[in-house]
């Protein structure tokens, strides 16, 4: 890979920011992030991820991307933590997502476009300092 100049860095930043901030997304462009830090994995995040993959395939949601992230801090009640970004829906953080709940997220949130009930929704822990 070529080494980056300052211009390359800025160009990459602009491009990737567009994706990260989800400007210009299509109707079915879904992004799911799962917390895969030590705490998440200890709470079963790997199984949760498998269930997500499996259900996505079953539902034929071909434009869905799954990403791994670190710990959001909801160690006790919140792990495994899953963040779901579906066009037209508020970005949502679900906590304590086991395999069953993971399937419900795909079926209810991603397909039926409804939030999944049951006390699993968490708020973002803080404002984003980079957006201030």
């Amino acid at each position: 890979m070529a080494k980056m100049s300052l211009e390359d860095l800025r160009k990459m930043k602009d491009e990737k920011k567009k994706i990260l901030d989800r400007r210009e997304v299509g109707e079915n462009d879904i992004v799911i992030r799962i917390g895969m830090a030590t705490c998440g994995i200890a709470a079963g995040a790997k199984k949760t991820m498998e269930a997500l993959f499996d259900e996505i395939e079953k539902q034929g949601l071909n434009e869905t991307t799954i990403k791994q992230s670190g710990c959001m801090g909801y160690c006790d009640k919140g792990e495994p933590t899953v963040e779901v970004k579906v066009p037209g829906m508020p970005d949502t953080i679900y906590g304590a997502v086991n395999e069953d709940f993971a399937r419900r997220i795909i079926k209810e949130h991603c397909v039926q476009r409804k939030l999944v009930d049951g006390g699993h929704i968490f708020d973002r822990p803080s404002r984003d300092i980079l957006k201030e």
């Binding site: 917390g35 992230s69 670190g70 959001m72 801090g73």
Partner: peptide, 12 residues
């Protein structure tokens, strides 16, 4: 969150 600004929100 300053130190944790990205934790949990980006692909590490």
């Amino acid at each position: 969150r300053i130190a944790l600004r990205n934790c949990g929100f980006i692909d590490a």
